[in-house]
Amino acid sequence: MERYRQIISDWDKFSYYCSQPLPKTLRVNTLKVSLDMMEKYFKKLGWSFKRFDFCLWGYEVQTGDEISRTLEHWLGYYYIQEATSFISVLALQPQPGEKILDLCAAPGGKTTFIAQIVNNKASIWANDIGFRRIRALMANIYRMGAVSVIVTGYNGLSFPQKFKFDKVLLDAPCSGEGNMRKDPRRVKGAELGFINNISGLQKGLIQRAIDVLNPGGILVYSTCTLAPEENEMVIDYVLRKRKVKVEDIDLNIPYSQGITEWNGEKFHPDLAKTMRIYPHHLNSGGGYIAKLKKIG
């Protein structure tokens, strides 16, 4: 992570939070249970809880219990989800009636969150590759009662262009550096060779994601890594390759602006509209979110 010292202004705070365990956080699934009802369940379970400031459905809970081992979890009343992973879906602002693609959807936390926000009243397409990933995705869709979702297994790079969407979420495969609090091996940061390789895949995926958008459609690109090669450099690349513009993300949360320069390379100035989330912002993992609009 040392190579990010130059771009993370509050380095001491960042380092401190990286060394702390993640809080237990979850999203209450209002497709199945009301918030009031779920708060009663929390009390019954003996958990203390605090609602997220930025999202009605997000909770941090304090308990010695393993929060995946309850009947309420098994029934799909909540989904264990980190604060950072709420942001990309909130940035997408899904609306009832829209056609929405989640291109790399497994294991389904963001897909089912989209279904929840639109109260199962949109057409949501969840795509991923690999049998195990798809199986996990389907299990979570069924558990959360997301009847508005279909699942396919296309390679994202060749997702059929005959299908068009109002919104696309591309939560891209990445080096996962932002998961350092879940997996301490990641504190060192990912190897540059791996980062450069996966950056190529991300550039391919984002182009296809834009190609399947309707004109005026919205793409949210997100990762759970801090590497500029997988974040700003991907967006900077696609701004040159496709007719898109960077949109402001209208969310009231602490964040750092996307960087506009890295290792002497200058990027499009609009990259400052993108968001870097560091562990100290939301007491979560780290990540990156960019919102793009397809022009014409």
Binding site: G97, S123, Y142, A146, I150, T152, F163
Partner: peptide, 24 residues
Amino acid sequence: WLINPQLYDWIFNIGNKAYSLGIP
């Protein structure tokens, strides 16, 4: 499969490529 009515249009365009439609 139990689906919401909004998904209906897609179902016929997608053919047999879908692994899952709504919930079984």
